[in-house]
């Protein structure tokens, strides 16, 4: 065995892909995100059985079944607490959470804030296409206020949610933005997000070719972040507040310790507990 083969990862992206055919439309950005996720796993050389992919409901939330890792496709908006429960109970697992802008920021908005705060060691990937795709084209929290659709004709009239700003204010430990059109770049971001301790949030702009064909233009709008990631909250806040939404790269790296209460270290028996009640 040569030195070269010794450092070659034993796993390839294919090892993390299942044989189930996605329900996504041809051209959907989520195919590429799936590719980035499996590429990141293989580059970290994680054993597939030690990885769990957890999701809620929506187009992007279909991802767990398309991987050959452990997975949980839960109810709408609740992927983060499901994942936090798993990670706290099983700290040995690498847990990635997949969501979309409706699942993650609307019905799951409260959990998003508290997951950032709690800082469990999770990687939270939100495929943001500014639309509800699975229910066929309604406005989500990140949709432009004047985007016309059947449910809110003429547009929702509501200012879009700024997830990266919220994540920073709520205490996320790692904040990045990727673009599905750059599979390798996104894989690199995900790899770093998984390795970073605590709660890592990665927004991935992932166009919906069916209900938002205008998003095909995103490939011309995205641009690499021009400054290095910061660990300074004030600088990060200013950057994220003035950001045009297409700044791609790692934007904030925090240094908070991950939340992981000890589990499995017993110092007493059940009989000891019962003794407290005895007269």
């Amino acid at each position: 065995m040569t030195a070269e083969t010794a450092i070659t990862p034993k796993h390839t992206p294919r090892d993390y892909k299942s044989d189930i055919k996605p329900v996504w439309c041809p051209g959907c950005g989520d195919y590429s995100v799936l590719g980035s996720i499996t590429k990141a796993f293989s580059e970290l050389n994680l054993d597939p059985e030690n990885v769990a992919v957890i999701s809620g409901i929506g187009c992007s939330s279909r991802i767990p079944a398309y991987t050959d890792c452990y997975g949980f496709h839960g109810v709408h908006g609740r992927s983060l607490p499901l994942a936090a429960g798993l990670k706290v109970a099983r700290p040995d697992m690498t847990v990635l959470v997949a969501s979309g802008d409706g699942d993650g920021f609307s019905i799951g908005g409260n959990h998003f804030m508290h997951a950032c705060r709690r800082n469990v060691d999770l990687t939270y990937v939100v495929m943001d296409n500014r639309v509800y795709g699975m229910t066929k084209g309604q406005a989500s929290p990140t949709t432009e206020p004047d985007w016309d659709n059947a449910l809110t004709p003429g547009g929702s009239g509501i200012s879009p949610f700024r997830p990266l700003v919220i994540a920073l204010a709520a205490g996320a430990n790692f904040i990045a933005r990727g673009f599905s059109g750059d599979q390798n770049g996104t894989a690199k971001l995900l790899k770093e997000a998984i390795e970073h301790p605590g709660f890592s949030f990665v927004q991935i702009l992932s166009p919906c070719v069916t209900f938002r064909p205008d998003q095909k233009e995103w490939k011309d709008d995205v641009h690499d972040a021009t400054v290095d990631p910061t660990d300074d909250l004030g600088r990060a806040a200013r950057r994220l507040m003035t950001d045009d939404g297409f700044n791609v790269g790692v934007l904030y790296r925090g240094e908070r310790e991950a939340f992981q209460p000890p589990i499995g270290n017993a110092s007493a028996t059940v009989a000891d507990l019962e003794g407290k009640f005895a007269l």
Partner: peptide
């Protein structure tokens, strides 16, 4: 804590039950 377990205070009951399901999925009775 004494018997090697853990209690997490959740942000609401939607989170509590989902966390419990997540922990149990991981193999720890919840």
């Amino acid at each position: 804590t004494k018997v090697g377990g853990v209690l997490v205070q959740a942000e609401d009951e939607l989170a509590s039950i989902n966390m419990a399901i997540g922990g149990s999925y991981g193999g720890v009775p919840a």
